[in-house]
Design a protein around this nucleic acid. Structure first.
Lengths: 194, 194
DNA sequence: CGAAAATTTGACATGACTCAACTGGAGTGG
DNA sequence: CCACTCCAGTTGAGTCATGTCAAATTTTCG
């Protein structure tokens, strides 16, 4: 299981990881199985762990006054999930995180993350690159949301992240795009006839 | 002018900066004046500098096929501006960055940034905190855009960032919120009568 | 197989956009 | 310093994209 995180870090930095370092990493990450529909984080709790998804599919979402879910983040293999705001600030989260498929994750607490950042340069670099990529991805998503129509946003997602469309049910994709399930259904129908 | 960046870094890390370090920092940042309407970055160019705004107001935006501008980022004193994607990936930018008021900025190239990251721990930490904050801010903006109405998004911005409303003309605020200037005008009128 | 959930479809409502006209203030040149 | 222009902002009318609600259909899964 821990092998996954090793490969992941190696994919971000081309310098080697020593056995000692690998040991530290192995101690820092706690493996956990999360069954479909089980929560990793519930609204109101402080997000104590970031989770590295080894296998499975998860989502981060809020629920509004009307009981409607708004998905702001999907996670599949080799992605991280968790509420960064709550994790860093130690404030109660406004979000829920749960599993959409049975998932295997590696949990990392804030303290362990500090530890890794201090002791393992390759890890520091990995996280800094990750932050940058996240920033860029967020920027793209914001741009899409203020400048594209629902239809264009769907096409954009289909092109950029086709795997998400296969992995998550359509109503969740609609929520992620910020449109109603009915609208997404109609958009897809229209897209087929091309 | 460089004093501003020193104060800025100190506000992010409570450890001191030595005179040598300060010298390195001073060498890394190139001051520049940018007049209102002048470009810092034009679509198609690679973003060679991130700019730290010492004084002034700037914006980052794209222009669509219909010639409509979509503002994805505002910058005022003590904020950074530039297209991170282009800056990091060295790809041509899809965005323009220009000054909304006469501005004083400090320019930082990618190489200088690497240099500072390597040599000055306080700087590394500053940037890592900054990335985290950016990530959190982006997350909030995405959440707002998929779950709130135009009216709620305006109220949200007015509460979170009132200074932007005073600094930037209304049509730009509308663009930033992803709504038409007319709609924003109506929303404000409605908000007044409360 | 049967119940529950997801998706599709239709009819209708509405928030936001577009286009156009009007208003007022800021900047410019004579 | 005034007259003129220009641009931002406002307002109104009509349209369109997307949402809402409800019913029908398909899929999933116990």
């Amino acid at each position: 299981m821990h092998e996954a995180i090793r490969k992941y870090i190696l994919s971000y930095t081309n310098e080697a990881i020593s056995d000692e370092e690998y040991q530290i990493i192995q101690d820092a990450f706690v493996p956990k199985k999360i069954r479909k529909r089980q929560y990793l984080l519930q609204e109101g709790d402080v997000c104590k762990h970031l989770a590295f998804i080894v296998h499975g599919a998860m989502r981060q979402y809020s629920v509004d006054d009307k009981g409607i879910e708004h998905i702001i983040h999907f996670g599949i293999e080799n992605w991280w999930i968790g509420d960064r705001e709550s994790f860093i600030m130690l404030t109660p989260s406004k979000y829920n995180v749960d599993a959409v498929e049975d998932s295997d994750v590696l949990l990392l607490t804030h303290e362990k993350m500090q530890l890794l950042s201090d002791k393992i340069p390759a890890f520091t670099r990995t996280f800094s690159v990750l932050d940058q990529r996240n920033f860029i991805a967020s920027q793209k998503r914001i741009h899409a949301s203020i400048s594209l129509t629902a239809e264009e946003r769907y096409a954009d997602l289909a092109e950029r992240n086709p795997s998400l469309l296969q992995r998550f049910p359509q109503n969740m994709v609609a929520s992620y795009l910020g449109i109603s399930p009915e609208t997404l259904s109609r958009i897809r129908k229209k897209a087929l006839s091309r």
